[in-house]
Design a protein around this nucleic acid. Structure first.
Lengths: 247, 247
DNA sequence: GTCTATAACTGGATAGAC
DNA sequence: GTCTATCCAGTTATAGAC
């Protein structure tokens, strides 16, 4: 019943080794290395889409292989187990997007020069995400839907999300602490929790809002949700984090 | 690759019939009928917990049977397929909770007598949920975590959530339309979408906020998140739904 | 690096006895 | 209503040829 260990064990119980990105060679990649990277990415692209839609257990190694148009043996050759493909999907993009968000927040902090606002901080945190959304890239869309699904799952919503995202979140909370003098930690953390839920349900792209609004709103309409999310969230943060007047 | 049809088909392709709650007999239930209901509920309780943690595909019929301490054949006897157990889990509680919310909102509308507020409407919508949370009931906790997971999944977040919850949501939006004169539909729907994300991530109970806050906040602390969710959400709604002054 | 073949096993589902 | 036994398709994973 313990899915994690069950799925990372080989049938025989032995540990296997497998091809990563074929060493960190600084020299120009030869033909084989280029092919490796290409195949690896084909698999990751396919996995991103399938896992986002059906979750880890709803996808088989054959599904992955078929969707990537490669042989099942290659999936094992490059990644080992199915669970390792799942983790590799998270790893591939999270570094990039987190770096962009760290930079965006640092840039904002410099520009604001001591005069930080809640809106400004939230905007700096979100802007790199919206940039990606605007590209309308299938891969990015799938990745963010996958993160959204994982976030609300008991299996991955705790430790795994913390592992990948706590650093950027603590950076945001630091900015907000400066923007709202006297804010206390519990209020800040709960407000962030509610904010993250809003962001995630939007990124999940389930088509729900189309149904609820009878097509008046569209899930992937960044121009519609971007400014609204910033305004809604900023008002929420202020409402519960700004110290109330009391003796 | 189409999980839904694949899982609702029998191996042979034939349709089977199976025991529901053994007819809607109005007469007092005899021993067998009581046993039926009991076994059915044992299976549903087990399913609620397992599906919440691992999703439909992460749980096997054998897992369900073992956890409920019944035979696998009984799972099929009562529900047909695994997917039908999944749906039955949703069905069992959604009627009850939705009814409580409809009543709560109607009661509020009467009491407010034309003087509706955003806080009041949000509170009336949420109070029955918080009541359940306060009971600290395992079954309810599992059910709401399951709903939260389904909500952010591409497979069930659209149609299935609409099917079970759109009615109460439209009732809430009607109240809010009255509380905020001049609010337009797009703003209301987007605000609701963000609100639902906040609520769902809390109900998902993933232990995330414990990790993020280094145990300063606790996932299941209704007293901590209840009033904060109401305040945060009300401020958000007002920020984006109240008409802006313009010529 | 890639493909074929296959071992080893899991999982959904049902027939039929009790 | 419940349990035993079983069918067999589908699944992960690997050995070994190319």
């Amino acid at each position: 019943m313990d899915k994690t260990t069950a799925s990372t064990r080989t049938r025989s119980g032995r540990k296997r080794s497998y091809r990563g990105v074929t060493k960190k060679s600084k020299s120009a990649p030869n033909k084989k290395e280029r092919q490796s990277t290409k195949t690896r990415n084909l698999i990751l692209d396919a996995a991103e889409g399938l896992f986002a839609r059906h979750g880890l257990y709803g996808v088989t190694v054959r599904d992955l292989a078929d969707s990537a148009a490669v042989d099942t043996a290659l999936v094992h050759y490059y990644f080992g187990t199915k669970t390792e493909v799942f983790h590799a999907v998270f790893k591939r993009r999270s570094g990039t997007i987190n770096e962009a968000r760290m930079q965006s927040m640092s840039r904002y902090e410099e520009e604001a020069a001591g005069d930080l606002t809640v809106e400004g901080a939230i905007r700096a945190f979100l802007e790199p995400i919206f940039d990606n959304d605007r590209q309308n890239d299938r891969g990015w869309r799938n990745y963010s839907a996958l993160v959204a699904m994982a976030n609300n799952s008991q299996e991955w919503g705790g430790e795994m999300m913390s592992q990948y995202f706590d650093k950027v979140i603590h950076r945001l909370i630091d900015l907000l602490r400066k923007a709202i003098p006297g804010a206390n930690d519990q209020d800040l953390y709960w407000a962030y929790q509610m904010f993250s839920g809003s962001l995630m349900v939007i990124q999940a792209n389930t088509g729900r809002i189309e149904l609820l609004s009878k097509r008046k709103c569209r899930s992937d309409d960044v121009d519609a949700f971007g400014e609204r999310l910033i305004a809604y969230t900023s008002a929420g943060f202020k409402a519960i984090c700004e110290p109330h007047e009391s003796a």
